[in-house]
Amino acid sequence: MELTWGMLAVWRRNCFVWRKLALPSLLGNLADPLIYLFGLGYGLGAYLPPIAGVPYFAFLATGTVAAATMNAASFEALYSAFARMQVQRTWEGILNAPVSLADIVAGECLWAATKASISGVAILIVIALLGYAQSPWAVLAVPAIFLVGLAFGALGLIATARAPSYDFFMYYFTLFITPMTLVCGVFFPAERLPAAVQAVAAWLPLYHAVALVRPLIFGQWPAEAVWHVIYLVAVTVAAFAVAYRLARRRLLG
């Protein structure tokens, strides 16, 4: 595996495309999580007591930051990266330049994390404007959001490297992303779940993302912060290695 400056050229290419369509893209990425947040947060939240000392809206909003980051990174690493790899043959073109496949996969992962961070941070700003993120320490959530983007970018690229077509990604979302969103503490504390489900949830990446991002937005140091960071870094590194190997098998025979 050979990583060079080439990965930044790949990142820059994707950023260049995004800048042309930045506004519609940003609105598209924000509309969905914000509709859920306001719908459930205000509607359902009116019937609910505070959770762990914060209003339900604030609880849900902080979980939404992690979930929206996960979703944005996953969409970019699945659908958009697949278009570049398979449909447009962009990767093939780049491989004819002195850029390695590892550079391309790493550049895609970095870009997915960047784009996801833009979504995550935009929601963080909405939360701050509503007065739920008052501590200046809330800025520490930004690097945490980026790390969450990296982990889900790398995981998504595994599916992309194996996907025969876009249809394959339905499985990724219905079997992995959607159940994870429900058991990892985005909508309600994971502690409410049966012990067996909790035990599984504690090994899912979104669980660690929420456990890290939520307290940081409230200006608190997360419990077991180091463990969550190590876990997400490990997922990023391992998933990247697998995605690279699968892409290699697919493109370089």
Partner: peptide
């Protein structure tokens, strides 16, 4: 590859 130019069989312009 830094010193080669390639025109591939299938169009892959951006």
């Amino acid at each position: 590859r830094a010193r080669i130019g390639v025109v591939p069989q299938f169009d892959n312009l951006d």
